[in-house]
């Protein structure tokens, strides 16, 4: 049949491609589009200089969870660079495409850059939003995506929870109440971080956007400094978006070496500097010092400290029937 001939064609075509330049597919989450555009160009140059071979890197972006699911369902990712470790854990656990201890294979928990959650407000800060407490005041509209579909939103949710715990000396009930009040002030839950930024900046909805730090600064540069400004809260969460080589896929494609080199490049001075320019907090001390002015000082806590790791946080807060669902249940 027609389709059969078509598939044969596809197979033949992929055989032809295999003989061409090395190809890598990096499956990533939403806010890294600009970062990897720069990284890919720089790495291809460096790889060519080192080995004389060409490498072509393709990108796929989307919500972190959706991207992980695509990889589980067979999207041929040589490397994954996702929003949270839980999603790469899922790939290891459900599809066995990489070892369960993947996070120990690269330095810093396999996280080349860190980020945090900050506030984006309208120019002049008309609602006087300085810290987390201001978000639960009546009449303040908060924009954040749905934590069930967006990795960034989960970091925001946990940041708010962690702040409330710290403030109330670890009182879990008060933290829950704080988060419930916060989400009462949310008029629209987009499915992803980019959707929320669009809602806030382009459509002019809401008084404050909870956002990845890099996303906030990018929005500031892309969409106009005269429209919005970044506010850094007193306390926030240390967000660690990790990276990993998808072993089975890379082995099949014969790209294991270049995939590993690609990820290691992220820790090189050049890679770190590209990250810092894109408002990701670098790991290398030298680069940190050089770009210190870019990143406001903020007291950061980690998810392991406060929530006991992703698996626990996910189960308690974001599963169906979890705390996030409960705070939306009627009559509560």
């Amino acid at each position: 049949m027609k389709l059969n001939r078509f598939w044969l064609g596809m197979v033949a075509a992929s055989a032809v491609f295999a003989a061409g330049p090395l190809k890598l597919l990096n499956v990533s989450y939403d806010p890294t589009r600009e970062l990897y555009q720069d990284i890919n160009a720089a790495f291809a140059r460096q790889w060519k200089a080192r080995t004389g071979a060409d490498v072509q890197i393709s990108q796929s972006h989307g919500g972190s969870g959706a991207q992980a699911r695509a990889v589980i369902d067979g999207l041929q990712a040589d490397v994954v660079t996702l929003g949270l470790a839980y999603d790469i854990d899922s790939i290891a656990e459900r599809a066995h495409l990489l070892a369960p201890d993947w996070q120990k294979r690269l330095p810093n928990n396999s996280t080349p850059f860190t980020s945090t959650i900050v506030f984006l407000v309208r120019q002049g800060n008309p609602k006087h939003i300085r810290d987390w407490d201001d978000l639960i005041k009546p009449g303040v509209a908060v924009i954040t995506p749905n934590p069930k579909t967006s990795g960034g939103a989960r970091w925001s949710y946990l940041a708010a929870w962690g702040y409330a715990l710290k403030k109330n000396n670890g009182d879990d009930g008060k933290a829950r109440d704080f988060v419930r009040k916060l989400y009462k002030n949310v008029p629209v839950l987009d499915s992803g971080a980019r959707g929320s930024t669009t809602t806030f900046v382009q459509r002019g909805i809401g008084d404050v956007l909870l956002s990845w730090e890099n996303e906030a600064f990018l929005a500031l540069n892309e969409l106009g400094k005269n429209k919005v400004q970044v506010i850094t809260p007193s306390v926030s969460i240390l967000a660690e978006p990790p990276v990993a080589v998808v072993d089975s896929v890379a082995a099949k494609h014969g790209t294991s070496a270049v995939a590993k080199a690609y990820l290691e490049f992220l820790w090189s001075p050049e890679g770190q500097e590209i990250g810092a320019k894109n408002f990701y907090r670098p790991r290398l001390a030298a680069v940190q010092a050089k770009y210190a002015g870019r990143f406001p000082k903020v007291q950061l806590f980690t998810i392991d400290e406060v929530f006991g790791g992703w698996q626990k946080a996910q189960k308690r807060h974001f599963e169906d029937g979890g705390v996030f669902d409960q705070i939306y249940a009627p009559g509560k």
């Binding site: 598939w7 596809m10 197979v11 992929s14 695509a70 589980i72 369902d73 067979g74 999207l75 041929q76 459900r94 599809a95 099949k252």
Partner: peptide
């Protein structure tokens, strides 16, 4: 056709891409 689907393992062995 997905990797976890009915035909996934077979397609994967024969390196035929349908989904994605």
């Amino acid at each position: 056709f997905g990797a976890q689907g009915w035909l996934g393992p077979w397609l994967n062995r024969h390196d035929i891409r349908i989904i994605f």
